[in-house]
Nucleic acid binder design. Structure first.
Lengths: 206, 206, 206, 206
DNA sequence: AATGAATGAGTATTCATTCAT
DNA sequence: TATGAATGAATACTCATTCAT
């Protein structure tokens, strides 16, 4: 039935709107300093309506965090689709990642500055969801690197260690920029990261 | 006056005792789930007495966190004193770091799992203290690497980037082990880290 | 117009259906634990429709309680219609009352266990309606007893005191059974009640 | 230690003071209409202090109700101590009961008018405590009557039935007076109750 | 007539901190 | 100095009722 479809679309649109406003608010204060009334007000809904979309404040928070992180990771991965060749792909991956950092530093600071709370039971679930997002991303990088290993470009090192090493080198640049933002974009570190990583893992004998 | 000295010694001993018990408690629960009464009880002091040593709960928490982290970093640095040569020093540094991770995972999980809170005003101060600890450590690593650069062993790359890269590679192994502890010590990753880092930064032309 | 009649019949049938389901629900939980949505669901109506039959939750509750109590009292009285003679009538009255207790204990426990609430304004109205039901019933018993007094069988005692005494002796057996239900029917107390009441009020000189 | 004793005395005095004020307040409104802040205010304590004496609102309410009822029943029983002979004792018992009704009608209306709430879990406990108080009282009456049965004054009827019959006859007069207070004291019904009860249960053959 | 999504007022309870003893 | 009883501010969530469709 078309009417049910429209309802669902509207429901999702409203839900997204709340999530969007909530992101801004949670980015600015700690969990405990954010009031439900504030989110309700900012998103143009009544307090009661918030509870039609989320089971409570913790659910609203954890949903926002995990969906947003999922989105960012998946966009980063999507960016590599047009690249040709391993090195080009890695370069694109690093660049896209740093660009998202630059554009979403308010949100990502939630993770860096520890502006999270232990959300009793929800925390376990959130932690699991974040870990899943991360693992999915690491696996994607592993698959990129696997190609390079097969062609002999890369040394025969543990895939996961390599993939996480790249991720943490990107993280280094991300965190530095987020904590000490400079006029220069974090993307300027792309070259260094690619250089040190490739030299670190490539086959120098060839 | 000798009496004043003894008093100060006793004061410091009691303060340290509180901090030690607090560490265990904060490691097990979130900041908001820890009650002052619990810390008072565990450390054998009255609630009121806690306020003779710390100005409040946040002060107690931030003091504990920053002093402990300071201690760990400084112990790691101290471990390199007996090593000879850059590579030996780096190897020792990595090994000592991973060993501290292995022995203090409860405490360090406070940082990894985001089980921190935004402590309104204190947060700024804590964040500053943690950043200072970190910078001091990074500077120490920079100085190690500077030697290698001067001898031509290492390429002419930005010192800070190199130092932080090493730190983040160690962090990669630390976090992985803390979130998914295995029987195998995190120290088993020492070789990989040293390998990829040195290959990444060394002068291959020589 | 016949159509208006049918409409009214249907209206009353629906209303009765809601009342019937509500009785079961209110019998199982306290007023505040019963949700309008639950009643709507159980009776197959939408929430909004409930408000076509009752002005609100309190009205629904008070209507249910008073109509049901009215019905029970009137059925008890009706049962005496076929009895001949005072003693037979009293015996029938007691028996019918205890039988209704046995068959409606869930509902009647609302009164006994105090599982009622003070319904702000409605309470006054409900209380009045319940009192009216009770007074009507007591008056009926008074009229039975008046006959016995006129024939000299009963002593010349205040009618109301006598009537209420009988009612409270029945209540004693009712409450005991409802709070501590036994396999034995509460009707087994009929003999005792009749005995003690008649001995209490009859004319022993005759 | 004398200091501990004084502390306990003071604790109990404060607790009693809260209970006393709470009784007046709960007598005037329904459970849900009474605010903790109101009780705190009326008793001269801070809100937080209330929670040092009681675990919560329900505990405060149930404690007040059950302790007060216990007190009233035990005072009624105590009044019979000076009476000589069964009939004198029963007369004293009835009189004392009705006098307490007259003096505590606000409190006792809590039971009559159903101004109670279903206090989730606490309700079960409260109900049990009230039942225990009641049973204790009925047992006391049974023991009085047992003497009369042994001397042959009373007929050989079930003790519990007799005892509860007397209690419900007193209740009849109590409820009537509480719902329709007259200038005349409920104690004026003492004669009628004693008359009808004794005639009902005594041995007329003797 | 029927629906059910949206509303928003209202309150018990916790716990860091204080300060009289 | 040490104690721990007293304080009181601060907020998520529920659900009866309404009214646009």
């Amino acid at each position: 039935m078309i009417r049910a479809e429209r309802k669902e679309r509207e429901f999702n649109a409203r839900r997204a709107e709340i999530l969007e406003k909530a992101e801004k608010i949670f980015a600015a204060k700690s969990f405990h300093d954010v009031k439900m009334a504030e989110i309700a007000n900012a998103s143009g809904f009544s307090i009661g309506s918030l509870y039609q979309f989320f089971t409570g404040k913790e659910d609203l928070y954890t949903t926002m965090v995990s969906e947003k992180l999922d989105f960012i990771f998946s966009e980063i991965r999507k960016s590599t689709e047009t690249a040709k060749g391993l090195i080009d792909m890695l370069e694109t991956l690093i660049d896209a990642h740093l660009q998202f950092v630059e554009n979403n530093s308010d949100f990502l600071l939630l993770f860096i500055k520890g502006e999270k709370v232990t959300l009793s039971e929800s925390m376990t679930e959130l932690h699991q969801r974040l870990t899943d997002s991360y693992q999915k991303h690491i696996t994607f990088i592993e698959n990129l690197l696997k190609g390079g290993m097969e062609t002999g470009l890369l040394r025969n090192l543990p895939l996961r260690d390599m993939a996480e090493s790249l991720f943490y080198l990107i993280r280094m640049a991300s965190v530095r920029w987020m904590l000490m933002p400079t006029k220069e974009s974090p993307r300027s570190k792309k070259g260094f990261i690619l250089d040190i990583f490739l030299n670190g893992v490539k086959n120098h004998d060839k």
